[in-house]
Write a protein that binds this DNA or RNA. Sequence first.
DNA 1: TTGAAAACTGGCCGATCGGTCAGGATAGTG
DNA 2: CACTATCCTGACCGATCGGCCAGTTTTCAA
Lengths: 186, 186
Amino acid sequence: MDMATTTPARERTRREIEQQAMALFGSRGYDASSLQDIATAAGCSKATVLYHFNGKPAVLAAVLEPSRIALNELVAAAEEMPAAAAQEFALTRFIDLAVEFRGLINVLQDLLGTLDQYPEFAQLISAGLRLTEILAGGTDDQLEIDLAKFAINGLLGECRHPGERSDAELHTLCDTALRRILRLNP
Amino acid sequence: MDMATTTPARERTRREIEQQAMALFGSRGYDASSLQDIATAAGCSKATVLYHFNGKPAVLAAVLEPSRIALNELVAAAEEMPAAAAQEFALTRFIDLAVEFRGLINVLQDLLGTLDQYPEFAQLISAGLRLTEILAGGTDDQLEIDLAKFAINGLLGECRHPGERSDAELHTLCDTALRRILRLNP
DNA sequence: TTGAAAACTGGCCGATCGGTCAGGATAGTG
DNA sequence: CACTATCCTGACCGATCGGCCAGTTTTCAA
């Protein structure tokens, strides 16, 4: 039994499929990217994709996994802080995440209406809702909570169209916009 | 020749198809609504839909037509005002439009990435771009223009999920958020 | 009433989708 | 070398998509 190294071929192919699927989902969206597209981009057959992943949603889950973990860690860390500190922390860290994973935001926007059909992503939705409450600063004012949602919507929409803007520019833009909406000092 | 009344049957069926298509596009999106779905909802056959409309994109164009006209009139009116007045005018009137046509915003978000494939909607896109410049107050500051885009993205995202919020609540929310982002006095 | 134009439809087409399966290539091990 | 477990694939499946067409039903004016 070999336990020092994982099987090389399996991992190599899996990662290649994941990376190409991430690129395709990001540029065309989930529904518009067929298994055949992913297989061709990864240099294998469609059957191979389904050999490594148990259906198309499993490919999506694998692609979304790193961002899911990062968002959960962010929310978990913020929930152990006082409200004001959590608000500031969530704002800066969430913008970092949105910029880092901006290619995947197309996917999320695509599936926001149908995400509830995939129970494996329920946790991602609840983390997003929790984030809005933290960003609203723990207030009871429903308008402020809605404004936080508004801000997140604007941020997601802004991160969808890639290319023209650098990471730094996008970061500055989102930071300014969120602070204006939430009335936070820079 | 009868010119006082239009042929009743044709117009009646056409309008029924338009209305059902609008409802389906709004709730499920354009791609997820098949011609068969529209036909069933309208109480006719799929072939009838294609008898009245020259392909699925033509159905979309008909559904989007009222909002397209309204947006064009808004932009045209604003462009004949001084920058400050145009900004205030565009802000209030655009929120009115977004609330009125909120069901269709799902469609626009769905197709933003592929709208350029349909040349009949190029005018709609250019009107949207022109609106952001007007909302930015005619400034040269690129950050302010980007913030205006951010605001529109947030507004569109907010109008996507129907039901829970009343028109008045949605209107107040969008008005507050846009004025905060654009730093306009209420 | 009647005949032609308008409105409508069932059935079919080619393409594409996600997914399955039996079997071929390949690689690591005794 | 031979054997076996893993990796991989072509062929195929049922479903659904947008679209087309021949032919039937309805409408309405002469």
